[in-house]
Design a protein around this nucleic acid. Structure first.
Lengths: 217, 217
DNA sequence: CTCAGCTGTTGAACGTGTTCAAAAACCGTG
DNA sequence: CACGGTTTTTGAACACGTTCAACAGCTGAG
């Protein structure tokens, strides 16, 4: 970690911003407010972060890092695939929970392809790889069709993005619906993977993979 | 259709806006620009549309209506499920194509749950029902597991939303990747539905449906 | 030490979406 | 026509994200 004056200021602005996001929400937090609370000028905040969106990229980065740590811990010594998948997804939602109230607003900035922040885009490629690595770790040691092995982490991450989308819209107490979804989906995925190895499904899986390859940019 | 002076003005503003969205993109089109081009004052535009987002809701409405018409035409006399699904999805992308260039920007306004415009929300419930009806029509006459019948249109619509998301990010010439995806996904879905009727998969499907019910708001 | 160049900092200014109080146009009723 | 009430129109005003030219502070070569 850089320790220069500059890096300290950057960190101060960032942490002030994330704190205000948590307590006040994304939309209600203004760049002027962040700057004032951090004790710097508006222009200074923009010196370190080119846009309000870019602060989200940092949030995304931190949350994935936290997910990875939590997931590794939770998966240690756990063998059944369903449980490992559940651990990976729960860890992600755990890491995001402080932001649920404003997750709504963040989505609007995060998803447009134009935005530098969107999870499928260029700027977040590095973070996405780390997120996929979590799912790669989750399927380690699991019996998985050989032809699926390499694509599976990406597929699981994609599915997990769907879970996150669900979570963003989830208005239930403590987002228990999302937890229920994860609890149910994890074993379903595991069983679907078993099914995928059966002869009846092989052709289907084969074609799906071919399609994915054709369609990938 | 209302024909009063008021309704005419509303329509003028709306069509001016949609036209500018198509030619200039969503972000680059300003409310002031719309008002000026339509020959009304800024305040007047806001009298008819509470926000810029609300103009998107109208776009969404019009595009679904067009999708329905196109889909019905394309499905007339077509029997195989895969072909009917393809027609339904292609019709949707056809209707959206004029907006592809700005689809990116529109996504940011459309997806946040806070927005009145998000496709899963309250305000668009009516439109969503119409969209689901398209897929209900698509599976008419198809052999489908009985327990899936009622949920399937919604599931297909959800999958189609995924396709739209893909389309928004699709930078390929004329979005051929999206077309390839549809061409491949439609038969895959049909075959998966066949597979779902087999004993090996019945338990899986049963559990998935139970999970959906538990998790639905 | 000097001072040129780089790194950080500042707040004014711009264009935006949105709000609102006031004015204008319209309408039905006497 | 007159006039009260409603609908429609208007543009000024506000807060915001973002840009930018100017300024200050620092650092290292001479």
């Amino acid at each position: 970690m850089e320790n220069s004056k500059s890096a300290q200021t950057r960190e101060l602005v960032l942490q002030t911003a994330l704190g205000m996001f948590r307590s006040r929400g994304f939309a209600k937090t203004t760049m002027r407010g962040i700057a004032a609370e951090a004790g710097v000028s508006l222009g200074s905040a923009y010196y370190y972060f080119a846009s309000k969106d870019e602060l989200i990229l940092e949030l995304y980065r931190e949350s994935v890092a936290e997910q990875r740590v939590r997931a590794s811990e939770a998966m240690a010594g756990v063998v059944p695939l369903a449980d490992r998948l559940r651990a990976a997804m729960d860890a992600g939602i755990d890491a995001l929970t402080p932001y649920h109230a404003f997750g709504s607003g963040f989505l609007g900035s995060a998803l447009p392809p134009s935005s530098a922040v969107n999870p499928f885009g260029e700027a977040s490629a590095e973070i996405r790889l780390e997120a996929e690595a979590i799912f790669a770790e989750a399927i380690e040691g699991a019996k998985v069709p050989a032809n699926l092995r390499s694509d599976l982490p990406q597929l699981l991450w994609l599915g997990y993005m769907g879970v996150v989308l669900f979570w963003v819209y989830d208005r239930s107490q403590g987002q228990w619906r999302t937890r229920t979804l994860i609890n149910g989906a994890a074993p379903l995925i595991a069983r679907t993977l078993s099914l995928a190895r059966l002869p009846v499904a092989r052709g289907l899986v084969e074609d799906a993979l071919t399609l994915m390859a054709k369609v990938r940019p």
